[in-house]
Write a protein that binds this DNA or RNA. Structure first.
Length: 357
DNA sequence: GATTCGTGGTC
DNA sequence: TGACCAAGAAT
């Protein structure tokens, strides 16, 4: 049984009417009817990539305190940017953020380009983010097809093709509904709908402005869409982290390579992380010492593997190291430590402290 | 086109 | 407890 036909204009009227009444107040949004600051929109969109609104809030506010304009951000040290980004994850975003700020400050005199095509040329801005900035900051007709869009339109049209194969189909369906009038509000309306009503689990269909025309709801399969292709299971990698502390109370950290996993962030030196069992390999330690394995494990899960780190500890004299820096324990907070390394530090301090007593 | 890239919350 | 999930981009 096909759902009763409904004109695109009517769908859009229902959506915008709902949005005007239920619009979320978010730190990066302008007051109703006003144009948002493109710098704020860009910064928020980068932070929001694969990251929840609740997590982004404090980071967004902190970045604006530290760097009120894109030119301030462009003039900052990359280390300072990475440090402020610590805990947000996907650290390539922070490196590209800095690059992008420098491009905007340099090429455009601190003014963001206002077309999708130009935005797309900037570092860290892909198809989604270019469309989002064009629509939200400049009210241009663009379709930022994020996960919310995919879920909402998969349900509205009962698309049963699993993701990611369904992406181009869903993007087309969304684009067909993008209006000439208020395209920015339209985009934010779909996102708000996806975030608050058309949620992944237990969608609140009774409160949805598209309750009547939604094909998936009419079929009773709204909560089952979008379907997704099965994911590969994550392997477990293991390694030894070397916690070296001097009598003066300084620990050895080192900077990770600029690209790849946790690129540019600081770490407790460790062996490679491999799927093979890891024995205490003193030859791989960053400095010589009487290394002892601490009890327990540090567990952490990345996007595509589980990690189990065993921490080895040694008390050593402060010495020159080719690759690393000695950091006083009370100044660890000044360095850009990803969450997994904060876990290592916490575990090392707790267990090594116990041993001493 | 498939992989690589974090983290915290939720059920 | 573990798998899934979140306003994706780069390679």
């Amino acid at each position: 049984m096909a759902a009763p036909p409904i004109a695109p204009q009517e769908l859009n009227r229902l959506l915008l009417d709902w949005y005007d009444r239920h619009r979320r107040r978010l730190p990066w949004r302008a007051e109703p009817g006003k144009r948002a600051d493109p710098y704020h929109v860009w910064l928020s969109e980068i932070m929001l990539q694969q990251t929840t609104v609740a997590t982004v809030g404090p980071y967004f506010r902190r970045f604006l305190e530290l760097w009120p304009t894109v030119e301030d951000l462009a003039a900052a040290d990359l280390d300072a940017v990475l440090h402020s980004w610590q805990g947000l994850g996907y650290y390539a975003r922070a490196r590209n953020l800095h690059k992008c700020a420098q491009a905007v400050a340099g090429r455009h005199g601190g003014v963001f380009p206002d077309t999708e095509a130009e935005l797309l040329t900037l570092p860290g801005i892909g198809a989604y983010t270019a469309a989002a900035i064009a629509a939200i900051a400049f009210d241009r007709k663009a379709t930022p097809a994020d996960g919310n869009f995919e879920r909402v339109f998969a349900r509205l049209h009962a698309v049963e093709t699993p993701l990611p194969d369904a992406k181009p189909i869903l993007r087309g369906l969304a684009a067909a509904l993008t209006p000439e009038r208020r395209p920015g509000d339209h985009a934010q309306a779909v996102m708000d709908l996806g975030a608050t009503i058309c949620t992944p689990r237990s969608p609140k269909c009774m409160a949805c402005p598209w309750h009547e025309p939604c094909e998936a709801r009419n079929l009773g399969i709204a909560a089952d869409l979008p379907r997704k292709s099965p994911k590969k299971q994550k392997p477990t990698r293991r390694g030894i982290a070397f916690w070296a502390v001097t009598p003066g109370g300084a620990a050895l950290l080192r900077r990770r390579p600029e690209s790849g996993l946790l690129g540019g962030m600081m770490e407790v030196p460790s062996t490679d992380w491999t799927e093979a069992d890891s024995a205490l390999a003193e030859a791989e330690a960053p400095v010589k010492g009487e290394w002892r394995l601490l009890p327990g494990l540090v567990r952490h899960t990345f996007t595509h593997f589980h990690l189990e780190l065993t921490v080895a500890s040694a008390s050593v004299a402060e010495q020159k190291v080719t690759d690393g820096v000695w950091v006083p324990l009370d100044r660890l907070g000044e360095h850009a430590l990803p969450t997994v390394m904060k876990k290592v530090v916490t575990h090392a301090l707790a267990q090594a402290g116990k041993q001493k007593r």
